[in-house]
């Protein structure tokens, strides 16, 4: 029987096993916490104006989405390889005709599937609360209007609707997912040469922080604004070695109503795929000869 060099079915099996493994770690408790936070944020600070109440709800929800996706992306990935080594699952898998790149790909897809599903659930919960809050605020304001002229009603609807639920917000969630996907691939790469889980978590968090300011370093380097050789060299090295995570930070402006066009979504997806492919190649090169 021929043994294929790459089998999507094997990768899928590994990914499904990874999802099961992560679900057993009870990391999805975060979802319940998220729902509680969203409901609380939705009805907190009723003294603020309607526009601000809705903005606050979106800010809190998107903040929680980011934290969930990044923490799961880093911590879950950092735990996977050591846990497989500890449980000896890794030896069982690799003793079968499973190439190491398929094992890595399966792990990555498993974590991404979990993050993706989690984000979908949270997005649905957040959208529901936002929609309810929007309708409630609108009804409250309209009830308080002395003269409900069509002009006044339209103005109120525009004011509240500007901060209400739009399809565009889901593209903001896509940006959160893409950033988490890049960070997950990065954590997997770090875990391939890391000596411990803690090392992977700390190093990846540091790269994530630098990655959010990478755009600033890159622009200074490319625009030749740095004179001393050490500054220029250091900024160039950081710009080359770290991903620009700032590219995915469109949420700040999406919350304020800016529309994510197909071009922008395409750029973000393209950049995320470039990083993920690059990091997976490096992970493979590091993992293929790793002594287990």
């Amino acid at each position: 029987m021929n043994h294929a060099a790459f089998s999507p079915a094997r990768v899928w099996t590994l990914a499904a096993a990874t999802v099961t493994q992560l679900v057993r770690m009870k990391i999805l408790v975060f979802l319940l916490l998220f729902c509680a936070v969203v409901v609380a944020a939705g009805f907190a600070f009723p003294v603020l104006n309607p526009e601000h109440q809705l903005k606050l709800l979106k800010d809190v929800s998107f903040g929680a989405l980011q934290i969930f996706s990044l923490v799961i992306g880093i911590v879950a990935t950092a735990l996977l390889l050591p846990r497989d080594l500890e449980d000896r699952t890794l030896y069982t898998i690799l003793s079968k005709p499973v190439p190491r790149h398929e094992y890595l790909l399966g792990k990555l897809l498993g974590v991404l599937a979990l993050i993706g599903a989690g984000l979908l659930v949270m997005d649905a919960a957040f959208s529901l609360v936002l929609w309810l809050r929007e309708k409630l605020l609108l009804a409250q304001i309209l009830a308080g209007l002395k003269a409900q002229t069509p002009e006044a009603v339209a103005q109120v609807q525009e004011l509240v609707g500007k901060q209400g639920l739009t399809w565009n917000l889901h593209l903001g969630v896509l940006a959160v997912f893409l950033k988490a996907a890049v960070v997950t691939a990065l954590a997997l790469m770090v875990s391939c040469f890391a000596s411990s889980t803690l090392f992977t978590v700390v190093v990846t968090f540091c790269i994530v922080i630098i990655g959010h300011g990478q755009g600033l370093l890159r622009e200074y380097f490319l625009q030749g604004k740095m004179e001393p050789f050490v500054e220029k060299g250091l900024s160039a090295l950081l710009a080359v070695l770290t991903p620009d995570l700032g590219v995915f930070d469109v949420i700040d402006n999406v919350v304020n109503g800016q529309v994510v066009g197909p071009g922008s979504a395409g750029y973000m997806t393209g950049i995320a795929l470039t990083y993920i492919t690059g990091y997976m190649v490096v992970s493979h090169l590091l993992f293929v000869e790793k002594e287990l």
Binding site: R218, V240, L241, G261, S264, T274
Partner: peptide, 28 residues
């Protein structure tokens, strides 16, 4: 080497994406 190559190749792509997203007012 792959990491350095990826890092060098991604710079213009990152720069173009940032410029596009800024033009679309999605990045500050």
């Amino acid at each position: 080497l792959v990491l350095l190559l990826l890092g060098t190749l991604k710079l213009p792509l990152e720069q173009a994406a940032t410029a596009h997203l800024r033009a679309e007012k999605l990045l500050t």
